[in-house]
Amino acid sequence: MISLRGVTKRYGPRFALDDLTLDVPAGETTALIGPSGCGKSTLLRTVIGLVTPDAGQVTFDGTPVDPDSAPNLRRHMGYVIQDGGLFPHLTARENVTLMARWLGPERGWDDTRIEQRLDQLVHLTRFPEDGLSRYPCQLSGGQRQRVGLMRALVLDPAALLLDEPLGALDPMIRVDLQAELKQIFADLGKTVLLVTHDLDEAAYLGHQSVLLRDGRVVQRGTAADLIHAPADEFVTRFVRAQHRGLAAEPGPDASGRGGPA
């Protein structure tokens, strides 16, 4: 579905992506994990064509992603950026339907269809109906994430790119939303590429996890593979750091639900 071949992106002397090759299988959820600054967001940006690689090639459904093809391909990819990126001057409804309204009736998006789609999404994400007419600053963090997700899904894209969709939420809501997201992914059966820096979240949501370091893939597999068959010393350290972090928290069930899938 999405494939990266030898993709390299440099910012000054630093490699954000370093000769990276990766296949994201269709209909599955792939979780990108790794320490801060390892290139997760950059990888997502190259897929959607916001960043043009210095070398290598990205293809989406067989079509090379380049500055010419990207604008069209983007309508087949839903993208939720790391900070949500809701437009503050538009209501939740307007944020979600912006793209569909711009496409307009002549491209198949008349008002009835937009309303129907909105209805489906509200149910899918369990967004409170009365929140639709509110502005982003009047919504809670979790509601904002749902709006972001609805906006990404409105054109019914083939793939969904999520950059730390739950990053800014408090743990309770986060756990609830993880469950909901998992359900949504299962319902939609879409290709999902999801960034997280949390191994447990990756294990819970992802069919496969990809661990990045300094712009390279260190290991790819199930979360169980990472834990039980680490490819190198770095993977071991990464896994141990995550679990020590959890162990340090009080409570008997600290590592909880997030065991290897």
Binding site: I81, Q82, D83, M99, W102
Partner: peptide, 21 residues
Amino acid sequence: PALIESARALGLPPHARLRLV
């Protein structure tokens, strides 16, 4: 920049981005 990025990622062309966002 995040808002610009969002608008681009939606697939809005430059003139629509300017007008709508």
